[in-house]
């Protein structure tokens, strides 16, 4: 770092600015769009300066979409609520199932262990469309179609492998001696798991949970096929903005801003836990 000349520093600054603009522009633009009417958005050339309007947000929140072709009922808030319910329930379930499983895969060598772990991961490789058709048939048979539980269950395909593999790595990084020490002090393996392993893998569990929450939140096809209107998350609900009288860009932008906000807040909140070191200096090194 000592060697950097003035020219080098300027170059670095310019490069960073360009990269920042490149990545941030769409987000900023969408944010701006959400305060414009469709007419303002479609103006050529586009303008940076405009008269902001909250119409898009009121339309979303009130559920009344005014288009050139007349009023349209939308259930955006309902969709948002569904997204929250479905994603959190899916992550909860995946954590309950995945964390102990990850621990087992990390600590115990058993027959077919690696095979099972890999099979679970391989669910992530298959395109969802491949399983959708048989899945929807089964779901109809089982009566799981269009139920929260059914969607949460299918979301496990997304969340479980992620949690399993990330958390397993964190468990493997904890020295087994730490748990042995706790057991020798007179605690059962269950206590060693809940009081030592889980707290120490905490940052990893949080990271995996957050990541799978985002993946579930962003899922589109599963919900599109398996859920009807009142169980649909925002990703599917956004389809409603493609109306007979054209695409409602302003409302789409507002919907994106509203739907991104929860995950963004969650990520910002969890960030400081995520960066916290894992071993905290318990073991030499």
């Amino acid at each position: 770092m000592e060697h950097s000349s003035l020219a080098g520093r300027i170059f670095r600054g310019v490069a960073l600015t360009l990269i920042l603009i490149f990545f941030m522009f769409p987000i900023v633009w969408i944010f701006l769009m959400s305060f414009q009417t469709n007419e303002q958005i479609l103006r050529i050339p586009p303008r940076i300066l405009f008269e902001p309007t909250l119409a898009n947000y009121t339309a979303l929140i009130s559920g009344q979409l005014h288009t050139a072709a007349g009023n349209l009922e939308i259930s955006f808030m309902r969709n948002l609520f569904n997204s929250v319910v479905l994603s959190s329930a899916a992550v909860m379930l995946a954590l309950v199932l995945g964390v102990p499983a990850a621990y087992a895969f990390a600590r115990f060598k058993f027959r077919l262990g690696e095979t099972i772990a890999f099979t679970l991961l391989s669910f992530r490789f298959a395109p969802p469309l491949l399983v959708l058709l048989p899945l929807s048939l089964y779901y109809q048979e089982l009566g799981l179609n269009d139920t929260y539980f059914g969607i949460v269950w299918v979301y496990q395909l997304i969340a479980l492998p992620l949690i399993l593999w990330i958390v397993r790595g964190y468990f493997e990084d904890i020295s087994p001696d730490i748990e042995h020490a706790y057991r020798l002090a007179g605690h059962s393996w269950r206590e060693a798991f809940t009081r030592i392993a889980v707290p120490l893998a905490g940052p990893g569990i949080a990271a995996a949970g957050l990541l799978s929450f985002i993946f579930c939140w962003n899922n589109f096809v599963f919900a599109l096929i398996l859920a009807s209107a009142d169980k649909q998350p925002v990703t599917v609900g956004a389809l409603a903005f493609v109306t007979a009288s054209g695409i409602q860009y302003g409302q789409i932008a507002a919907a994106i801003v509203l739907s991104v906000t929860p995950t963004l807040l969650l990520a910002l909140y969890a960030q400081r836990y995520l960066v916290e070191g894992l071993s905290l200096g318990a073991v030499k090194g």
Binding site: S175, D177, I178, H180, A181, Y182, R183, L184, A185, G186, H187, S188, W189, I196, P199, L200, S279, L280, G281, A282, V283, K284, G285
Partner: peptide, 20 residues
């Protein structure tokens, strides 16, 4: 027997303290 029932105390080379 389970380790916690053996009446054994142990000190480890890498200390194995509980970091939290």
């Amino acid at each position: 027997a389970a380790p916690e029932r053996r009446g054994i105390g142990m000190a480890f080379q890498n200390f194995a303290l509980f970091p939290h």
